[in-house]
Nucleic acid binder design. Sequence first.
DNA 1: GTTAGCACTCTTTATCATCGACTGCTAACA
DNA 2: TGTTAGCAGTCGATGATAAAGAGTGCTAAC
Lengths: 346, 346
Amino acid sequence: MELDNRKIIILKTIIKNYLATGEPVGSRTISKESGLSLSSATIRNEMSDLEEMGYILQPHTSAGRIPSDKGYRFYVDSILQESDNRVSEVTDIMLKRVDKLENLLKQMVKILAVDTNYAALVSGPVLSENKIRYLQLSQPSPVKLLLILVCEGNIIKTELISCKKPLDTEELLNLNLLLNNSLAGRSFKEITPKLIAELLVQAGSQRNLVSTILNAVVELMETGEESRDIYTSGATNILKYPELSETDKAQKLISAFEEKDELKELVAEVTRSETDNSHNVTVYLGGEGPIQNMQDCSLVTANYELGEGLRGVIGVIGPKRMDYEKVLHSMQVMMDQLDRMFGKEE
Amino acid sequence: MELDNRKIIILKTIIKNYLATGEPVGSRTISKESGLSLSSATIRNEMSDLEEMGYILQPHTSAGRIPSDKGYRFYVDSILQESDNRVSEVTDIMLKRVDKLENLLKQMVKILAVDTNYAALVSGPVLSENKIRYLQLSQPSPVKLLLILVCEGNIIKTELISCKKPLDTEELLNLNLLLNNSLAGRSFKEITPKLIAELLVQAGSQRNLVSTILNAVVELMETGEESRDIYTSGATNILKYPELSETDKAQKLISAFEEKDELKELVAEVTRSETDNSHNVTVYLGGEGPIQNMQDCSLVTANYELGEGLRGVIGVIGPKRMDYEKVLHSMQVMMDQLDRMFGKEE
DNA sequence: GTTAGCACTCTTTATCATCGACTGCTAACA
DNA sequence: TGTTAGCAGTCGATGATAAAGAGTGCTAAC
């Protein structure tokens, strides 16, 4: 059987209606709302077909139809295609100019949550190619060394290191020189065992100390997923959707949002799976890919990039019957905002 | 009327039972469980008295009694007294040695939540008297200055500052000298307008730059409540208690845990209200003090101190019928752990 | 002072009939 | 052949009613 135009219209009507109400939709409703002038009986026949083809299903005999995963998938894909061509309207979301990136992201995720009425998350950006600009050692107290690492994009990281015996000024200067000579300009990957070995040889008597420092540097450089910041908002929106608010499911979901660990993995997974999409907008339906343990949920994600290779993920989690059109649009607007704010700058 | 011994036993039995079940408790239950060999009828008479005295109340005519706020207060206070004398048993909570304080706190709050089955929060520590140990300026790129501020307790803060024109090495050195001379050893309060004015005079041609730097320093020093980190865990435990899991209340509470802003205020308020209690353990009943908008909740808080004046707040939020005994005990154990870990060190 | 017993209240739970929203099928129609 | 009207049948939702259960207050007796 073929999915002809009329079937498509009916399918879309069913889905839209279901998204809006959360209730199974019956043939009469469609007959009235689809725009087609067909009687409910005809619709019923078509619906029979659609069910047979697997796009919709019936929770129980005397109920209307709800979209199946295949149906959702079809719908989401067709929206995704449309919105590529659509110019996102300029909405006047007032993202007040904020001083810190962190605050900006917090603000963004909040707006997204309020705007969509779903749970939203944003990952802090991670440098894809994190290069050391320079590093600096100083000595706050006799047996402590402060390591300051400045990376491309002015990312600053510090670490306190204990050392056995105090260094005098000259030693400190030499150490700084030595480290900068070999490490400045290098990315994480370029700190090879060979390089480390060389450095240790050059270090001479300071061998142990240099080794400790190198460990600290490597640790700081590992912008590992574990260290990624995740900001969330609107987790409790989940409670608004009956199909998710059964105590058990809601608990799991909201916990995931609170503890963040799961979200980190999720972000990691999303980051890995690159597509050629412009902002890499992807829709995962419950059970697929990164959200296997989130039944009945949908996850919409997009990647953002702030220039200089700073990249992160933004996402919205809601029930399967989420208003995809709206969510995709909201995300688009967010992306545009970010592009505008950071495209111009620097 | 007087609260004689028998009344106290009955009252405690009522409360304990209510805490365990969440259901109003009737006279027969008490007759069986109180340990007193009295018939339910006698108990009923006593309960009448207790109700008249305001310690308990009846949700509706044909129901048992539940503790009133006055009842809770009585109960909590009596526990608090007891547990002062009690040696906290050593429980073998495995707080794995963690490298970062942040992780330790996260671990702690998680344990507390799991252990008590309520929602738990811990605030990151804040230096009560935050003194600058030294500060350092360096120049990562021609028009950027990196300000590094090292405070007592090895708290390190950094800030990137833009400057109009590049400084040469000597200027940078002088600037560092100037700033350290006047600021090192000072606490936030000691950076007075007078001091600032003096500094600006000494700065001479670098006046503008020094002003910018000073602003940054002051900003970094303000360990304002807004910048306090808050770690939470177990927010969804709230859903386990019927009296809180009505969508509306649960939503509010869990949101508070997610967005953290409210919690920050709460912590601020708790911090302000000092008592002479050893760990400053306090129980707030729903509506009292910092949790006015959290009806039907109780908040148990304690202060912790990590030496060097690093202080923070730890707390548990649950329904009014929370198992105070257990919570207070768990918190006690946490405090002991912290004391042990940080008392020995340094 | 304590207790047994009874009448009364009020919530909870179960049961049952009714209603309404659907579907699927058949037969008629264009 | 595609479309439609109509009807029987299914199943969940709703609401009313009854029965059960838990508790109290009061009174009278011990």
